[in-house]
Amino acid sequence: MSWYYIEGILILSGINLVAVLGLSLLTGFTGLFSFGHAGFMAIGAYAAAFATMKLGMNFYVALLFGGLMAGIIGYVLGKLTLNLKGDYFIIATLGFGEAMRLILDNIQYFGGARGWPGIANYTNLTNVVIINVIGIIILVNIINSKHGRNMKAIREEEMASNIIGIDVFKYKLKSLMISAVYAGISGGLLAHYIGFLQPKMFQLIKSTELTIIVIFGGLGSVTGSVVGAIVLTALPEVLRNVKEWRLVLYGATVVFIMITRPQGLMGGKEFRVIHIIKRIVSKLKAPLNKEVS
């Protein structure tokens, strides 16, 4: 394996991770499932590509622009559908994702279903890593605030959240918007990495992949999402040698993890270096204490 190849996998993992981080807030911390986040990625991808290629905007401003557009559409979608009870919201997101793709299929200005080639390659490993670090810091800071706790409360018990004064609708909307912004930025990165956009890239299967990564990593764990994004993006590439068995093995791995660890790899826990050091220290101390007693 050449470095070029590994770098490619890392960049794709990183691009996925940005979207997964946002979805982790929505699904892992607020308890709302979505099967339409590929739609937000598509909005971000086309908006960012439009900004750089047609308006000549700076790449990073264009990424923010893409994220913002996705966030605005997320707001509208949320306003319309978040009042629906649980399962109906999922169906609404599914419909939204597919509608987004069909709309783009028909916008000839962006190349329609044939696609849009020749987008500049501004995405590289460095900026993907930096954006992920920023994305993780923002996410963790939100989660460790009263706003994040309100979202967790909604995930745990909606009625109790209401009676302690949490505006459940408002917080679901905030969570959806933030996750849409993350997906939008991820889409912008993808457009400027592949250099080519086609509505087909943002099918239901893409939304499902993002949700699988969040669940695989463990709901309510940011580190789980990071590990999940890297493992599950790399896995199909690593398995490329076994050709037609690739997707079977991918599916089998996911099922295996779900059966052996239904809470996901990390399941609500965070991987902290300090914890591990503490554990090792306490293990080292244990025999010493025995000698004393």
Binding site: K146, R149, N150, K152, A153, E156, E157, M159, A160, I164, G165, I166, G220, G268
Partner: peptide
């Protein structure tokens, strides 16, 4: 109806929010 998967402390802390 507690926030089942949160700790005692987190349950109370969450409710202090406003």
């Amino acid at each position: 109806r507690l926030f089942k998967n949160l700790t005692t402390y987190e349950n109370i802390l969450t409710a202090c929010h406003f």
